[in-house]
Design a protein around this nucleic acid. Structure first.
Lengths: 343, 343
DNA sequence: GCCGTCTGCTTAACCGGTTCAGTTTTCTGT
DNA sequence: ACAGAAAACTGAACCGGTTAAGCAGACGGC
């Protein structure tokens, strides 16, 4: 119990076992070059001493990994807390990382310049082995940057505009078609999508699918308006839409936060949900289940999505060629916020 | 342009400048030992080469820092997304870290055993220089562990039961008294607190303050019931409370998530808010502002709270003696969910 | 003219691992 | 019993920084 223990090194193990540093290294890494008997002895000593490899030392060796990956979330801090998507994603990423002892570096930035600076710094300072990037944009400059840095990366989004990077994408168009058909079947004719920021690829995909599906269903007046995912934008946009003379009878929101805000506005303006207005939220969350009426939503398994992404990034870091994959698309979960008009 | 560049090292700079490694190190770290002229030349070369210090190499040096701190969030993944508190905290921590180039490692765990294992691993593998711990518990085993590991740490909570660790705390009792007086002044006599998990220190403090303040205000029937911060618990508890013959006329929830769930239940049971029931949420969030009626809440500047914690941890890592500090307490923001009975 | 000090730099050790090139030991075959 | 190969292990270099110790030359004092 005497004094504060220096953390044990392989040299301590080597001395205790009466062998050289090299032998200990071979033993601990399960590599040939040491007899099974010696290996057993070394492992036992390492366990007794409570040894764990020093991550910096490992990383320093030629070809060494730092054992960490990075995730930058580029959203205004105040709107962030509300998006369960990210925390679930993080949680999914970590369940995958846990088995391999890899850590996650999280950074929250206010703009894409800062996000790119983070990648540059992480790469230059050798702080991560790779990164997961979300919210793929049109002509996304981040793609160029990580390619130039030759920083292993996996993109969430696509599958277009991803350069040489592997990506994990979902069929947002398919899910959106399901939503539109569902609303058309309920008898809605004037439907509007409150979309995310126009520069996001997934916004584009959803908008295109929304308008196409609406046209095919004969819903001539369908249109999309862009917003920025914040509650304020949801409030403002909804107020404007509902104040129009020919107000829509159904609204499809690109995130849960705006949908909840929209529900609040409808309530405030005396528009009953769902008898006078149907509401659909894109990503589901506890939030959608908690508010009254509960919100019909597109449900995705975000946790597996994150896990899958981490798995792909691990492969990319390992040096393998990783191919783009499609994750299961979201499905529509009808709840209390949608229904036929006047019901 | 030719081929992929190896990342530059101080050796490359030394060669280009015609000096030794050591001189370069002195120059780059602003230490004496080189002439101002040489220093300038070395800095210029470093800039041209796009040099950045290798974090693992730095950490390996005797007395070297790894330049990262850790935060473990120990909450079930599905309930997590909804608590803006954590993302705001992270955001605050990072604004402070950004200036010193320190990174944040985030881990989400499902139980405290895993949380403790994370601290042990981080310390053993030298992955962090220190940690910030949240949700201080009664007889918190984590305190012992980080003390034993001599891992620099800052606690959010307390100020009791923190052992030798510095902590950053808020006067929850004061804020709670404000809530009770406010409700009493509105004429409420039967009030109930839907508290967080009993094992949390801040739950204890709030419950004690709630009951004491209620008694002083002559609200004999006040009581607290424990819940676990999830929406489900909020729903279940509220349903039970409102079904009683002498149902409470005001409810104080320990987080925003349960408060929103409670609001939904009231709506469902035909209990009007605020004319028949007043609702107060502890931590404010976009959520409280979005739902209808908007929720009266205790507002704290969580971002500064995180920044302050990061600052203290930086000092602790630097070796200084850091003393426990009090952060500004939360304040009551009345909104639409509270009012006099029958109004 | 000589000693001492200060400046500006170099040399080399060190941090804790990995790995390659040898060297010694053990095993195998005939 | 002995050569040759394979297995077990050692020693040293290396990764990219930091830092203590050493050393050459300039400068000042007396």
């Amino acid at each position: 119990m005497g004094g504060l223990m220096r953390r044990p090194t392989i040299m301590d193990i080597a001395k205790a076992a009466g062998v050289s540093k090299g032998a200990v290294s071979y033993a601990l890494n399960g590599r040939p070059g040491v007899s099974e008997e010696t290996r057993g002895r070394i492992l036992a000593i390492a366990r007794d001493l409570g040894w764990a490899p020093s991550s910096p030392a490992r990383a320093l060796s030629p070809g060494g990994r730092v054992g960490a990956i990075g995730l930058v979330v580029d959203r205004p801090a105040h709107s962030l807390g509300l998006e369960p998507f990210f925390m679930q994603l993080v949680s999914g990423i970590e369940t995958e990382l846990a088995s391999s002892g890899v850590d996650l570096l999280l950074q929250v930035t206010e703009d894409m310049g800062a996000e790119i600076a983070a990648y540059r710094r992480w790469s230059a300072e050798r702080r991560v082995d790779g990164v997961i990037m979300v919210d793929l944009r049109v002509d996304d400059p981040r793609v160029r940057v990580v390619e130039e840095l030759s920083l292993p990366a996996v993109l969430l989004g696509g599958p277009e505009g991803t350069g040489s990077l592997p990506c994990l994408y979902t069929d947002d168009a398919g899910a959106m078609r399901e939503v539109v058909h569902y609303l058309a079947a309920l008898g809605h004719r004037r439907i509007v999508q409150v979309a995310g920021p126009e520069e996001f690829m997934h916004t584009r995909a959803r908008v295109r699918a929304f308008l196409d599906a609406a046209e095919q269903a004969g819903l001539g007046e369908a249109r999309s308006v862009y917003a920025d995912y914040t509650g304020e934008a949801g409030t403002r946009t909804t107020r404007r839409l509902l104040a129009a003379t020919d107000r829509p009878t159904a609204l499809v929101y690109d995130n849960d936060l705006m949908a909840v805000a929209g529900l609040g506005v409808a309530h405030e303006m005396g528009v009953d949900v769902p008898s006078q207005l149907s509401i659909v939220a894109w990503d589901d969350s506890v939030l959608c289940r908690l508010v009254r009426p509960s919100l019909t939503a597109i449900v995705r398994d975000v946790v597996s999505y994150g896990r899958q992404a981490a798995l792909m990034l691990g492969a990319a870091i390992g040096g393998g060629a990783v191919e783009t994959r499609e994750a299961p698309r979201g499905e529509l979960y009808p709840r209390a916020s949608t229904g036929p008009l006047g019901a």
